[in-house]
Write a protein that binds this DNA or RNA. Sequence first.
DNA 1: AAATTCTCCTGAAGGC
DNA 2: TGCCTTCAGGAGAATT
Length: 270
Amino acid sequence: MPELPEVETSRRGIEPHLLNKTINSIEIRQHKLRWPVPENLASLATGKKIRDVCRRAKYIYLKLDNGCIIIHLGMSGSLRICQKEMPAEKHDHIDICVSNIILRLRDPRKFGCVLWTAGDINDHKLIRSLGPEPLDDLFTAEYLHSQARKRTCSIKSFIMNSHIVVGVGNIYASESLFKAGINPKRKAGKVSLTRIEKLVTAIKTTLRESIEQGGTTLRDFTSEEGKPGYFAQRLLVYGRAGEPCAVCGTVIKRVTQQARSTFYCAQCQR
DNA sequence: AAATTCTCCTGAAGGC
DNA sequence: TGCCTTCAGGAGAATT
């Protein structure tokens, strides 16, 4: 399940293969993703040079002279760099062919998307209302604390809200709250500035560490070369219900919040 | 406005 | 062995 570190790992992996290359063709085998893949995507992008390979939140976009191809990996999406003769397998929905290689999107669950925007990426409907990047200097404890004021939702769903801050998915939310010693069920507005400071630091360090490890592979994530990420072995609470807490030995709990699993240590997290 | 629920989809895992 | 059920989950849309 790609979260920000996995998306960034993918972006870094594909970038050197694509930068300043011309798109020769695009093959769409499956239009039915989260939103329909634009019918005219190939005609818009063919012959255009890829000027940049960027990420905003969990979106990757290829910047061309006349617009951007926006890609989201959803739950089960992955990007691979393939040789031209490599046949497409099941769930390989889209090929973007560039010089002698193919950027291939595979997405068994079809929660991802491939879209086009002719305008400024930051004006796009899906991008414009997003909160700050977690690794950006704009994401500070003061910012998060001011946003949390009067909020009654849980601190976990608060940090997973992409209008507040992007890129904190289910895994890293649990991990960051553990590191910060905050109970996931606590109301967002009831967390002190001091503890919000710990949380912001925890979010940044957790995401940075995971990017260094090439992301977390739980089920189907692999890099553009098909390699798994190694952060999973560093997870402290996620997926560890029933196991002892690494810090205090108390059995780690699993609860459901907003129909998502949350893992935490009731002793360490208050 | 804020918070919660619904929805898309398929593979994996567990039960019998 | 194999069929059936349940679950996971990003995030926008719909609903309360």
